[in-house]
């Protein structure tokens, strides 16, 4: 597998959300607007790239038995960095994402890539894998956020294009499940034709 394929696999073929169904909690929880989705996606991308980098650097130093706890500590450190940085520089986004920022720690994608990819591959492939997977995740969150925002409040990136409210249910929790269900169905259909 060359590096380009390694990078692009996260977008459609192995998309963390639409195909692997990992990290659904933040996916559903924060995507009331496209911007929130993108913010969450990028925060996760940062953690993913950095943890993949560090894990692949020290993979030979970690005894096999304490592998998972070590990965968790590495991931949690980067999550703390993201948490404090966002609190300082993007307080509005920090408020909107709330509980889901510390919960990046338990996002299965991050630990999953550390365990399945970074602990077996060299530094460069691991970073590219993290970047591709992270951006694929961000892409999925942005898409879901955009769909919910357009249907729910009749706006694109906070710019209203209709008068009054949209179909309010899409901003509310049930709409998250329904919109994601249809998006996955569409993705399945697209994957079959290509």
């Amino acid at each position: 597998m060359n590096q380009l394929q390694n990078f692009t696999k996260g977008f459609i073929k192995d998309n963390p959300v639409f195909v692997l169904l990992l990290g659904l909690c933040p996916t559903l929880g924060v995507t009331t607007t496209a911007i929130n989705g993108l913010g969450m996606g990028l925060a996760t991308t940062f953690v993913l790239v950095m943890s993949n980098l560090v894990v692949s650097l020290i993979k030979n130093l970690i005894p096999d038995k304490v592998r998972i706890p070590s990965f968790i500590v590495i991931i949690a450190s980067f999550v703390t960095i993201v948490e404090l940085t966002m609190q300082a520089y993007t307080p509005a986004l920090f408020e909107a994402l709330g509980l889901f920022i510390p919960l990046i720690v338990v996002n299965c994608i991050v630990l999953g890539r550390a365990e399945a990819f970074a602990s077996k591959n060299n530094i460069i492939s691991s970073v590219i894998d993290g970047l591709g997977m992270g951006l694929g995740f961000a892409f999925a969150l942005f898409l879901l956020g955009a769909v919910r925002e357009i249907l729910g409040s009749g706006a694109i990136l906070s710019m209203k294009f209709i008068q009054g409210d949209g179909v309010l249910v899409f901003i509310l929790p049930p709409g998250a499940f329904i919109a994601l269900g249809y998006l996955i169905a569409i993705m399945n259909r697209l994957k079959k034709t290509t």
């Binding site: 169904l21 249910v169 509310l172 929790p173 049930p174 709409g175 998250a176 499940f177 329904i178 994601l180 269900g181 249809y182 996955i184 169905a185 399945n188 259909r189």
Partner: peptide, 21 residues
């Protein structure tokens, strides 16, 4: 066909969430 498995599960979950609202 396209809705089998996860998609229909998510949509049912959405309807369940609607009930909880």
């Amino acid at each position: 066909k396209g809705m089998r498995g996860v998609p229909i599960a998510l949509i049912s979950a959405g309807i369940l969430a609607l009930a909880f609202m």
